[in-house]
Amino acid sequence: MAGVSIAAQLSGLDAVVDTLNKLIANSQNLYPAHAQMGEYLLESHQSRFQLELSPDGEPWEPLAPETLARKEGEDRILQQSGTLRDTLSYEATPDELLFGSNLEYAATHQFGREEAGIVARPFIGLTSSPWDDTDEILAILRDHLAES
């Protein structure tokens, strides 16, 4: 019988199985990674508030003249009292990470409210400029999954 045959012998299979078992075990409880991601997101968003930047790196829309007049010289955007910035928080569980603010007006500022003349000033989200939140979050997850 004519043909070709290939014989292969696998070695080091125990190391592969051990690595896969470690990945499976570490993926069962992502709470430590989610908590670390939440802390990172708090810092990242606090920095963006200081810079008055949206997640895409664009400056927030300037305040309207009537808003500036009402704020009596305070020209910081979304930071009149600091409450919006200070209510950013996260909830980490083994299965998910929730991040945001519990203030009703947070959604108004994130998405805008046309009928009230309030423009959107997105402040929640992952950014790639001037730093890359996605890379950092993936690094946190990678480190968690690789832990012994």
Rank of each mutant, 00 (worst) to 15 (best):
Y105K: 04
Y105P: 02
Y105S: 03
A106V: 01
A106K: 02
A107M: 03
A107G: 04
T108Y: 13
T108G: 02
T108W: 14
H109P: 00
H109V: 00
H109Y: 02
H109L: 01
Q110V: 08
Q110R: 09
F111P: 02
F111V: 02
F111I: 04
F111E: 12
F111K: 05
F111C: 01
G112S: 10
G112V: 03
G112M: 12
R113D: 14
R113E: 15
E114C: 07
E114N: 15
E115G: 04
E115H: 04
A116G: 04
G117A: 14
G117E: 15
I118M: 09
I118K: 02
I118F: 08
I118Q: 04
I118S: 06
V119Q: 11
V119E: 12
V119F: 09
V119S: 13
R121Q: 10
R121W: 07
R121E: 06
R121S: 08
R121H: 09
R121C: 09
F123S: 04
F123M: 06
F123H: 12
F123R: 07
I124E: 04
I124L: 10
I124F: 01
G125I: 07
G125E: 08
G125K: 01
G125D: 11
G125R: 07
L126P: 05
T127P: 09
T127M: 08
T127C: 14
T127R: 10
T127W: 05
T127H: 11
S128A: 14
S128L: 11
S128N: 12
S129L: 10
S129T: 14
S129H: 14
P130N: 05
P130D: 05
P130M: 05
W131C: 01
W131R: 11
W131Y: 07
W131E: 09
D132C: 11
D135N: 07
D135L: 10
D135H: 07
D135I: 07
D135C: 02
D135T: 14
E136T: 11
E136D: 09
I137P: 03
I137C: 03
L138S: 04
L138V: 12
L138Y: 07
L138G: 03
L138K: 01
A139F: 11
I140G: 05
I140A: 09
I140W: 06
L141F: 11
L141H: 05
